[in-house]
């Protein structure tokens, strides 16, 4: 029969058809010396120091958006989770759950994109799983990636924020809200469009170079769903230190400003996929900023605020007007407003 081009329940059943899919699609896209072939596990060389391990699942719609797709997102997202803890990401798993009837050509595009993203970041996808569920039981494709990396002992404090102290600067590596704006503009059901693309990207090389030149970095966290405001509120809780940021200092593209005006969204809470918050001691701020700006993913890096001695239980935004207000975590998703 002619190649059907769509996923069927047989592709997830573990037999010949499954094996054929794995070799023709997944191995093609991810092929490397460590990839688990027909064995049950990938056997890997351990790194030195502490091990970092993370996992994340990806259900984004639409699957293909300006600047990326779910494959690129799934790889970059997990690489970034490892990198912001100070670890060098090494190995990823890549597991998919697909809906019966999913297009194989779309699957090939997604896995190719995932493979390319991993390769460009110097990370290997070494194991994975494929399941197929009946039509209607999932939204096209869901992807889970788990990742391991290794970090030097002295960097282990980065993710606990234990080194964050008053006077430290708060930096971001570029414009905020790009990803969510790109997604909104690419949806068919809303009558908006723009040229903006998602900032979806692996940040491991940016972060590695930063740490090498500025080992005093006190904290890092990538700002995904919930935006930079959520990361700052989390940091405030984790570190017990006050935070103050200046609205004027936050880099933002015009498109993001436009979308936030149209729907009544707050850009501080809009999703990113290639941005992180960095806490750097005051004396190293200039050199850290310079270092970030040297990298393609940090060209628009900026200092947006500082850790304060006062108000340790608050995250404060100073508005353009000179007024201020407290940032709280979002309680749910931002909803578009008419009022």
């Amino acid at each position: 029969m002619k190649d059907f081009g769509k996923i069927t329940l047989a592709h997830g059943a573990g037999g010949d058809i499954s094996a054929e899919l794995i070799s023709s699609v997944f191995m093609q896209a991810f092929g490397n010396k460590n990839v688990q072939g027909s064995s049950d596990s990938a056997i890997l060389e351990p790194g030195m120091g502490k091990m970092a391990f993370t996992t994340d699942s990806y259900v984004v719609q639409p699957l293909f958006f300006p600047g990326g797709d779910i494959g690129k997102l799934a790889v970059a997202g997990t690489i970034n989770d490892l990198s912001v803890s100070g670890a060098i990401p090494l190995y990823l798993s890549f597991s998919v759950i697909m809906e019966e009837g999913f297009s194989i050509s779309d699957l090939k595009k997604i896995t190719k994109s995932a493979g390319e993203t991993a390769r460009s970041a110097g990370v290997q996808i070494v194991t994975g799983d494929t399941k197929v569920v009946e039509k209607g039981s999932c939204d096209g494709i869901f992807i889970n990636t788990s990742g391991v990396g290794f970090l030097k002992e002295e960097l282990a404090g980065i993710s606990t924020a234990s080194r964050v102290k008053p006077g430290d600067s708060i930096l971001v590596n570029g414009t905020i809200g790009d990803h969510e704006t790109a997604l909104l503009c690419s949806r068919k059901d809303i009558p908006v469009s723009s040229e903006i693309i998602s900032d979806c990207a692996p940040l491991n090389s940016l972060i590695r170079e930063l740490i090498e030149s500025c080992p005093s970095v006190a904290f890092m966290r990538d700002a995904t769903r919930g935006g930079i405001a959520t990361v700052l509120c989390e940091l405030n809780e984790l570190s017990g230190r006050g935070i103050e940021i200046k609205e004027d200092a936050i880099p933002m593209k015009e498109e993001v400003s436009g979308i936030s005006g149209i729907f009544g969204y707050d850009p501080l809470f809009m999703a990113n996929e290639g941005k992180a918050i960095f806490i750097i001691p005051k004396e190293d701020t200039e050199s850290a900023l310079g270092q970030l700006r040297k990298h393609p993913m940090g060209k628009e890096a900026a200092v947006i605020g500082r850790i304060t001695k006062d108000n340790p239980d608050r995250t404060i935004l100073r508005t353009r007007a000179g007024g201020s207000h407290i940032l709280h975590r979002l309680s749910g998703m931002q909803l578009p407003r008419i009022c």
């Binding site: 508005t319 353009r320 007007a321 000179g322 007024g323 201020s324 207000h325």
Partner: peptide, 9 residues
């Protein structure tokens, strides 16, 4: 008014 902190001005 809340967001811009107008009352404080």
């Amino acid at each position: 008014i809340s967001r811009f902190g107008i009352r404080s001005l």
